[in-house]
């Protein structure tokens, strides 16, 4: 669709604010624990693309989600993952980039049997 702007070459002058070069070598990655909306939204992290997926599970997730009463009951072998909508089985040793996690990718995970506080999705 044509740009509605006073200046003819407006579209060429646009400076994309969130392009990957602005993040000091990191990618912005969003992480979301499904059915646990006590965490009001997906969480955003600036992460190095070479970071192993395992660090997400062992460090980041426990730090930021560990306070939830369901957390201790997660069976990690049963967790279902999607990256930008595609089902994946992560390999903890491989990097985020190798899993296809790019700049502004969304990683969602479902924990079978756990549906939030008293099943309320909270």
């Amino acid at each position: 669709m044509a740009v509605v702007a006073l200046e003819k070459d407006y579209a060429d002058k646009v400076e994309v604010r969130d392009r990957v070069e602005n993040f000091h070598g990191n990618h912005v990655v969003y992480l979301h624990w499904e059915e646990h909306l006590g965490f009001c939204a997906a969480l955003a992290f600036p992460l190095p693309p070479a970071m192993p997926f395992g660090a997400l599970i062992q460090e980041i997730i426990p730090t930021y989600y560990g306070m939830h009463p369901d957390f201790a009951s997660i069976d990690w072998s049963a967790v279902r993952w999607t990256i930008d909508g595609k089902e994946v089985t992560p390999d903890p040793a491989k990097s985020l980039a190798e899993h296809g996690v790019g700049h502004k990718s969304l990683v969602r995970f479902w924990t079978p049997g756990l549906h939030g506080f008293k099943g309320s999705h909270s």
């Binding site: 702007a5 646009v14 400076e15 604010r17 969130d18 993040f23 990191n26 912005v28």
Partner: peptide, 15 residues
């Protein structure tokens, strides 16, 4: 074109 210039506070903090 307009919204690709959004000043999003979270991303600005990361930058």
């Amino acid at each position: 074109e307009k919204y690709s210039q959004s000043w999003l506070p979270v991303h600005q903090i990361f930058q």
